[in-house]
């Protein structure tokens, strides 16, 4: 098949882009089915005590931003957690599936917002990942689907998962 490479110069209006790129990949339901296909889920949110919070921070070396953690118990064993991480330029919502014994089964990015000098913690953006209310399917803000060039690192997610594993040990396991 013939290949193609064509550079398209954009009109000025398109170049002065948004202060943020945002992508939404999965709703809570979709993320659950992506990590644990065919299973059912029981909401089991956890509110951390200050003692637990400190213990998690100590064990993981990562700061705990929220006392409240969105957790679901998976039929047949395992846990499904929705979590978020904030970097200097990014706000990422992701889902982590844990096996019954606490190891990571799978991580799926549910969505991210990337801003430079803008407001990272957009409440409306966050709201769409809270609970199971969001019905929307995959949608990208603006028409920009693919971007090439310096991109987000996954360092904050690595830290987030470290924190979740400590959370499991301290707040879920027993």
């Amino acid at each position: 098949m013939k290949s193609e490479f064509a550079f398209i110069a954009l009109p000025i209006s398109a170049l002065v882009v948004p202060s943020a790129f945002a992508v939404r990949y999965l709703t809570v339901d979709q993320a659950q089915q992506a990590i644990f296909p065919g299973k059912s889920f029981t909401a089991a949110p956890v509110k951390l005590t200050s003692v637990q919070r400190k213990a998690i921070e100590q064990a993981s070396g990562v700061r705990v931003l929220h006392d409240e953690q969105q957790v679901w118990r998976v039929s047949g064993g395992g846990w499904f957690i929705v979590d978020e991480v904030v970097g200097k330029h990014e706000f990422i919502t992701y889902a982590a599936g844990l096996n019954p014994e606490g190891s990571v089964k799978q991580i799926e990015i549910m969505g991210y917002r990337e801003t430079y000098g803008g407001q990272i913690r957009d409440q409306k953006w966050r709201a769409q990942f809270v609970g199971k209310t969001s019905k929307s399917t995959l949608k990208l803000d603006s028409d920009i689907k693919n971007i090439s060039g310096a991109t987000l690192s996954c360092r904050h997610i690595t830290d987030g998962v470290k924190r979740l594993l400590a959370f499991y040990e301290i707040a879920l396991r027993h």
Binding site: M1, L10, S19, A20, Y116, G118, I147, G149
Partner: peptide, 14 residues
């Protein structure tokens, strides 16, 4: 300025 785009490329099989 990484949240601005400098242009676009159309790609196929590449």
């Amino acid at each position: 300025e990484p949240t601005r785009t400098a242009g676009a490329v159309r790609l196929r099989e590449r």
